[in-house]
Amino acid sequence: MIETATYGATRARVEDYFDRTATRTWERLTSDAPVSRIRQTVREGRDRMRAIMLSRLPEDLAGARVLDAGCGAGQMTAELAARGADVVAVDISPQLVDIARARLPQDVAHRVSFASGDMLSPDLGRFDFVVAMDSLIYYAEGDLASALNGLAARTEAAVVFTVAPRTPFLMAFWGLGKLFPRADRSPVMIPHSAPKLAARVAGLHPVARVSRGFYISQCLEVRR
């Protein structure tokens, strides 16, 4: 667990956003309900990114313990459990955890343990794999590197995660608010350079980038 002032402040903003402002927005975005054209590009981009991240893990995860760090509404959690993994699904938002739990297919529910709180807590134990999709995108480089090093130290195989890449488009929006309407804006995501992160996190390398309309994200991994 990171105990810096910047990490704590960012975590508090993220918690406030998802639990008090945008729960219903994200519930709809992660469902099959109709959404605006902008949000449809985000939905399609996230679907593509989730598939890329899952491709970095074995098809058969029977016996593997996997942390879904920032599980949100539980799409990744369900797919990991369907592959046979024992999943610890953690999100800072209790409301999103409730949605994920309600959506989880009953035939895999016995493989999933849900919790709300800090996804970096060492009390969660050790894992074979960690996946963190769009849950680390709000943190500054120092806090992000500390988070990854802490997770990697408790992971046997790989930590697969996403960041906002340092593209001209994202840099233009950095600090100017989000791409959703004002009422739905999240804390400002911080674009990162993969080479700069790699200099601070051993074993880190880029995997793939997804750019679909208003969704732009970079998948990276830390291999043990």
Results as ranks from 00 to 15, higher is better:
residue 72 G to I: 00
residue 128 D to H: 15
residue 189 M to T: 07
residue 131 V to I: 15
residue 164 A to K: 04
residue 217 S to A: 14
residue 50 R to E: 09
residue 192 H to V: 04
residue 6 T to H: 12
residue 155 T to F: 08
residue 40 Q to E: 15
residue 194 A to T: 10
residue 42 V to M: 13
residue 123 D to P: 06
residue 119 M to I: 12
residue 131 V to G: 04
residue 135 S to L: 11
residue 49 M to P: 02
residue 22 A to P: 04
residue 70 G to E: 00
residue 104 L to Y: 10
residue 74 G to C: 11
residue 185 R to H: 15
residue 175 G to H: 01
residue 179 L to A: 11
residue 1 M to F: 07
residue 69 A to K: 00
residue 178 K to W: 11
residue 199 A to C: 01
residue 223 R to F: 06
residue 39 R to C: 12
residue 103 R to K: 15
residue 51 A to T: 10
residue 139 Y to V: 02
residue 137 I to N: 10
residue 198 A to Y: 02
residue 166 R to V: 03
residue 50 R to Y: 00
residue 90 V to T: 02
residue 59 E to H: 03
residue 73 A to T: 15
residue 20 R to K: 14
residue 178 K to E: 13
residue 211 S to D: 14
residue 11 R to I: 02
residue 10 T to W: 07
residue 86 D to L: 14
residue 117 G to Q: 11
residue 17 Y to A: 15
residue 36 S to C: 10
residue 154 R to S: 13
residue 93 S to D: 08
residue 182 R to S: 13
residue 188 V to E: 14
residue 184 D to R: 04
residue 71 C to E: 03
residue 93 S to F: 07
residue 150 G to S: 10
residue 178 K to M: 11
residue 224 R to D: 01
residue 173 F to L: 14
residue 107 D to A: 14
residue 152 A to F: 06
residue 84 G to I: 07
residue 218 Q to T: 04
residue 84 G to M: 08
residue 8 G to K: 11
residue 80 L to T: 06
residue 122 P to R: 14
residue 191 P to L: 08
residue 117 G to P: 06
residue 168 P to R: 05
residue 148 L to E: 02
residue 144 L to W: 04
residue 83 R to G: 06
residue 20 R to C: 06
residue 130 V to F: 08
residue 20 R to S: 13
residue 42 V to E: 11
residue 92 I to K: 03
